[in-house]
Design a protein around this nucleic acid. Structure first.
Lengths: 346, 346
DNA sequence: CTGTTGTTCTTGATCGATCCAATGCATCAG
DNA sequence: CTGATGCATTGGATCGATCAAGAACAACAG
């Protein structure tokens, strides 16, 4: 009795191959292959016979063999960011879910890999050269995406979730959420409720995304002829920054509502309100961004801009299918409009 | 000019193969293969020459070919739960990160797949039969894991994150976090601070995990000779249940501290406290479980039991390496002790 | 009857790596 | 000088699928 038998009780049976099915159905290997990949090439009765044999044997094509021959793995590489306890994670989680579901429908699986924080390209290179994945989904383009340029140069197929902010003419497909539209939506929602002095708390000026979202707020304000000066603050993305900024704004500009670039900042606003005995939603309205977990469990509920990540995933996969098709098609960028999850805070 | 050239500008060069390297280094294919996989079989100078050739050509072994021959994919399948906006997600996110990092060090990549909510086994079967993955990591064992039994029957290598509660004699490797120890730790922490009436808010009795955590609380109480009767409540895992349960307990049993089976429940307690004008941490102490995002951003900070997911990932990979080794080794179950993240609420 | 066309199925080669068995070549004991 | 031993390297077969031709056969026009 060999080692495997001792441990497992018996040797696991070798999975059936194409040849096994062929023999059983009384046809050639190629015919079985066609039954699987091009059923309409077979005569109806032959197809049926082959399919019966496939079912009886429980045959499933060996991925490695197929990949070797077709030079495709049907895997999509997704690099996950270094761990950081923040909103970004929960967001990514939703996106990953959607991406996995959507790609499965398209016949792809998602392969995760982690980046070396020092050399973000290391992981890509390895997977690419060993032909382990067919394409990549790149998510952290907000950093001025070096990987987009790098992947482009290597002619590696990839789709970005996030606009190429610093390279508007980039020729790769991308999908993004229109943050400006989201904040405009949030602001208009507040204005419709009768608020006139709506303040903005956002990120520092060097953030493309932050400036984009801010633009949505000021656009909505201007559209109603309302002033924006003195009503905006740009800080770090932390709860305490949001708390500090909102305290200052309340003292100096007396806003009746806040639109924030993130739920984290909005949490800070809520804290300031509770410190001052103000009730969110009644005395002062607050809107966050990302519809994170906290927005849902915090006391009156935090109204928040929700990114349509399910739709993003669909568009990403659509673009991937284009890239990997014959002939390859490079889809143009897609911009999706977020929705507003209205809760007690507004 | 063919289609690819028209789209890409030029045809991407075929990646170098083992034979290319062999030719360049003036050795046989097998020698190059050995240089990669068994370097100590080569004479030092030959090895050097081969490695130079590898570097010059930028050679990386073709994964598909290797997988075909070795009957291994070096991929680990991880099924992600159907999307549910809850604590579980953030937890999984941390775990997935750790798992990806740890498995990379062991030479494995993580393949995500989603389960059909109706037939949770569908995804497994597909991947298993097509030899797409070498093993699985199973995470949702709290449901009385049908997949564990199923995978076991198919002799598919897998490691569970979570004990086989309903089948203590199960012969598969597993890794779990000792929830009882965590709650004991939390309770002792409160008792050390001088609290004597520490209440418990947990899940309904049919949850193995819930009862396990509860046992930690009662163990700690009994160890100091303190009574537990009337101090426990079992409810649904929602904020409002936690709010309701804590209100009742405060009225009927006057506890000075709460230990909760989840951060969600703890959030409910915090809400009750704020409704009654009580300050968490000063008037009444609260401890949650899972150290979720909300625990960190909520007002005074929520003390919470933190699962050592990084360590879990390490143990899971260790067990996987055992299963996939030659000969395979089935590691016994591993139980890890959580830590306590102390914040303002206690 | 021959040649063309089209459908259906089969055969041999191939993808790029590793496994296996064998070879060349020193070294060294008898 | 012969044969045994060990090390470094090699050539052929193989994993299981798909690709690229070609073969067998029927239908049908000339």
């Amino acid at each position: 009795m060999d080692t495997a038998s001792r441990v497992f009780g018996r040797v696991p049976p070798a999975p059936p191959t194409l040849a096994d099915v062929a023999e059983r159905a009384g046809v050639s290997r190629q015919t079985v292959s066609n039954a699987v990949n091009n059923p309409d090439l077979l005569r109806a009765d032959t197809l049926l016979r082959v399919q019966e044999a496939i079912d009886e044997l429980g045959y499933s094509p060996n991925r490695a063999a197929r990949n070797l021959r077709t030079r495709a793995s049907h895997l999509i590489g997704l690099r996950i960011q270094p761990v950081q306890e923040g909103t970004a994670n929960a967001l990514m989680d939703r996106f990953v879910h959607s991406l996995v579901d959507t790609s499965r429908e398209a016949g792809y699986h998602v392969l995760l890999f982690s980046g070396d924080p020092i050399d973000p390209l290391a992981g890509y290179d390895d997977l690419l050269r060993s032909t382990a994945v067919d394409a990549f989904v790149v998510t952290d383009t907000y950093l001025g995406n070096p990987q987009a340029a790098w992947l482009g140069a290597r002619r590696a197929p990839f789709v970005a979730f996030g606009r190429p902010w610093d390279m508007p003419a980039a020729s790769h497909p991308w999908v993004d959420v229109d943050g400006a539209a989201g904040c405009e939506l949030a602001t208009s929602h507040l204005l419709d409720k009768g608020h006139e002095r709506v303040a903005w708390i956002g990120w520092r000026k060097d953030s493309f995304i932050g400036e984009d979202r801010r633009a949505g707020w000021s656009r909505a304000m201007r559209a109603r002829g309302l002033p924006t000066s003195g009503l905006a603050s740009r800080v770090e993305d932390t709860v305490s920054s949001g708390r500090g900024a909102s305290a200052v704004l309340l003292d100096e500009a007396q806003p009746s509502a806040f639109v924030c670039a993130s739920d984290t900042l909005a949490m800070g606003v809520l804290r300031t309100l509770s410190e001052r005995g103000l009730t969110p939603g009644r005395d002062v309205a607050v809107v966050g961004f990302d519809d994170s977990q906290v927005a849902q469990v915090v006391d009156p509920g935090l109204t928040s801009v929700r990114q349509p990540l399910e739709d993003v995933a669909v568009e990403v996969v659509k673009a991937l299918e284009g890239l990997l098709g014959h002939p390859p098609v490079v889809n143009p960028g897609v911009l999706l409009t977020p929705t507003l999850a209205v809760r007690g805070s507004s």
